[in-house]
Design a protein around this nucleic acid. Structure first.
Lengths: 244, 244
DNA sequence: TAGTGGTCTAGACCACATC
DNA sequence: ATGTGGTCTAGACCACTAA
């Protein structure tokens, strides 16, 4: 019945419920790894039918914000405590099954970010950034060199030591120690030639073609919270992608 | 009722319906671009409720086998007649919106496929293959060099002329002329150095780092029907990917 | 045995497209 | 006015998990 020309903005009930649940996730009402209330409970809480809650949760599950486990409940997704070591890492060995990789942190220091970095992370004014550099290796052969830029305000107190000591994926540390959950990411991939210093770290000849993977990661509300540039050796690994 | 110990193989009704619909799609009962019967009709046909058909179609829609259009119907997905020129091409210009690219076919000839190609395409015995080579260019600057291997049995009569004359994406031609629909694909990406002949075609210096994108495409029943190796210049373009 | 998510139904009503 | 997909409900029953 609305005649508002600027936009009816019709929103289905289940979308509104989804938004409410998302907000609770964001505010930490239910922590990563914990179960959220049963569908029937949520239905009572929001005064809608179970089917409507169900459809909301369905979408949250496909977006990997929650994980359903039949007979047990619905759980807040987490990067920690997972069998999949690196949910966002698409690099796989050419032959075998994906094995674990050894991490080595080169340094972790606070820096004034270059303008493009600050712009990508939407840093206001003179807001600082933290630069982490690390490598991933397999069978003692370096494969990945990462440069990771983080907003200093969100990751106050991050040190190489804490990174080294933490068991599990870095995004798990971000969750448990800093309350920052990575939800989604966009990658831009290029082929580049290894410069002298990169070549040294990755143990290849200067000029060797490397995969350059620039990743911008987002937390709730599409807020960018990490800019990462990875250089991948692809002589015994490859970047995997699936198209639908 | 089954006491088969080898596996209960419980399958929800909507999965069975989904399989039946998929089979009809595969057999061409409804052609690409056409509408499939209304949900209520399918419900009557399969003797289930509309909600069950709905859930089956929901999954087919997320797999991009069909496209729903409110008020109009559900349509068989097609690579032809689409606004998105290349559904599977993830290459985007660094700055602007994705524009169209000019195609140029270098050649199209029947060949005995190398063993790795034959294996990937699951070719039996001495089954032949067709090799298509083409470039994509933007603003008269070559960006992509593709080598495309196809099973000769499926694409009998494919010529460079037909490829050149056809308006629209190549996968559209495959659909309308050969009845082969590309459903899904897997890509393996590496960084490589341009060899002399590639460098000439792409107008770069030999040794220039290029993205090597190896794509294996599947039709219904996860049957591989195309192996494509693309070499991408990434000086003004990049490969885009989204992680969830 | 109880609690959870998963399936299925039947029916009502809404939003969109077309005639 | 009609037909399509989209939303929402209420309730029944199934499958899985854990105590």
């Amino acid at each position: 019945m609305s005649t508002d020309p600027s936009g009816p903005a019709f929103s289905p009930l289940y979308q509104q419920i989804k938004l409410l649940i998302t907000r609770s996730l964001q505010e930490g009402e239910w922590k990563p790894g914990e179960a959220i209330p049963a569908e029937t409970d949520l239905a009572a809480r929001y005064r809608v039918s179970q089917g409507t809650v169900r459809k909301a949760i369905d979408e949250l599950a496909t977006e990997n914000l929650v994980v359903r486990r039949q007979g047990k409940g619905t759980f807040v997704a987490t990067h920690a405590e997972e069998q999949i070591q690196y949910r966002f890492l698409r690099l796989a060995p050419d032959d075998a099954r994906p094995r674990g990789m050894e991490r080595h942190f080169i340094d972790c220091r606070r820096m004034r970010p270059p303008a493009p970095i600050a712009r990508a992370l939407e840093l206001k004014g003179a807001e600082g950034a933290i630069l982490v550099r690390r490598t991933l290796a397999q069978d003692d052969r370096p494969v990945v060199l990462d440069e990771i830029w983080l907003p200093a305000l969100l990751f106050k107190g991050l040190t190489a030591e804490r990174l080294t000591d933490y068991i599990g994926p870095m995004y798990g540390l971000f969750e448990t120690e800093f309350g920052v959950r990575m939800i989604r990411a966009e990658e831009k991939i290029r082929a580049v030639a290894a410069d002298a210093s990169t070549a040294g770290v990755l143990a290849v000849a200067p000029g060797t073609p490397l995969l350059s993977v620039e990743r911008l990661s987002f937390t709730y509300g599409d807020k960018p919270v990490e800019l990462r540039r990875g250089l991948y050796r692809t002589d015994s690994h490859h970047y995997r992608n699936t198209l639908n």
